Computed example of a mutant assay.
Amino acid sequence: MIDIETMSVLIVDDMRSMRLSIRNMFKQLRLGSTIRHAENGREALKMLNEGLFDLAVIDWNMPVMNGVELLGKIRNSKTLRDMPVIMVTAEADRDTVINVAETEIDAYLLKPLTMKALEEKVKNVIESANNPDKATIHLQKARELEEAGDIDGAINEMRISLKEKPNASRILRNIGLLYKKNNNEKMTEKCLVKAVSVNRQDDVSRFLLVDFYLEKNDLPNALNYYEKGRLTGQQAVEKGMLLAEKLIEQGMSSSAVSIFTQILSKSRENLSMRETIVNVCVQNGEYNYAKSLLKKIVEEQPERYDLELKLAKLYAGTNETDQALICFEQLDNSSGLDKILTPEQIISIKIWLAKFYMQNKKPFIADNHINQILKIDPSNETALKLRQINS
């Protein structure tokens, strides 16, 4: 039993002012006697593993390790998983947190916090922890049976819990996952589909369905459930990348591009993600989208000669000679090229230019590029052959 007046509370927020504000509210409300702070999820996890806490109040948006990542660590720990957790978030993140609420948090609070809202949430959460309802008791029994290897018994307990809360998508989802452990694909799919139908905000079940259909190579259904979800977290990005790559392989490029665009709109590491997407597109023959992304990157970061070279080669490979010439000429005239590109890359630029000018009846310009190649690599076979042809 948790004593609400003497309980130990951990407040996790990257803003010192917010940590102190929540602490003061707890003290004024006489909730808890030991109140400690952490400024990010990683620090909080260390404290949780080293001490005993009855309640955690966690901010959603933090550096190093955010609130959802910390929540996942807590719920996956046998020693911490039953600890009540309240998530704090800004109004802008409300929909995302409501989705998370259907997974593992006990309650959420919107900023700016009020004394009344905090008191109400804390009391409700502690009351539920001290006096779990019938559905929760059966869920706990199901977990014990699952850990003991009795999957059928766990499913039965879950079904009893579902009778208490027939529209709880979390319970439906967990039943589906138990059926998956029993290799019952039909019931796995049925339960996950039902979970999404009773709670349209349950993106956890939705993305489990994406995985389910990807494993069966059912791309239309995988795409359907992915597009209806809200993209949050690294796992969602990874699923999107995998799905998009499979769509390109099957000739569904427009759908893949739509997913890539959605991922980029949400990605904090936008540049790195764009480079990754470019590589995926090039490997799978989706050159137009790759070129559009590379063009934007080069415009934003003209010092990225390596990416401009990749763009030039894509233009050349798709017979866009005028655009390729612009890129190759810009690269050839760039200062400090040898500090970024390898000698082989520099030679590749000059070889393309030499061939271009030979084809366009400008032997003197072509010869100049050939000579530059031979200064770098006197035995370069391609340059030597071009010299013979050009002479």
Rank of each mutant, 00 (worst) to 15 (best):
A290G: 01
K313E: 14
E300Q: 08
K310S: 08
L337T: 04
Q345T: 04
I277E: 05
G251S: 10
S335H: 06
P343E: 07
D306T: 09
I277R: 03
K350S: 07
R268L: 08
G285T: 12
E269S: 04
E303W: 15
E308L: 14
L247R: 10
A354M: 09
Q301D: 05
Y289T: 00
E320D: 08
N279D: 15
S292R: 08
L271E: 08
D322M: 08
L314I: 12
I297H: 07
N333Y: 09
P343K: 08
Y305G: 03
S272G: 15
N319I: 06
I349K: 02
I326R: 05
A354H: 07
G251M: 12
L264C: 05
L271G: 06
Q250W: 14
E249Q: 12
K291D: 00
R304H: 04
S254Y: 15
S348D: 04
Q330M: 08
Q330A: 08
L341I: 03
L314W: 10
V280D: 14
W352Y: 13
L247S: 12
Y305K: 02
L294Y: 11
E300I: 00
F328S: 03
S348L: 06
S253C: 09
I340R: 01
L307T: 13
L325E: 01
D332T: 03
L353M: 13
K350Q: 15
D338G: 02
S254C: 09
S334R: 02
L311C: 11
Y287H: 03
P302E: 10
E308S: 07
R274I: 09
C327L: 13
E299P: 05
S348V: 01
L293E: 10
L271P: 10
L293V: 00
Y315F: 09
V278I: 15
N279P: 04
Q323D: 15
I347Y: 01
R304Q: 09
P302G: 11
G336S: 07
A316W: 07
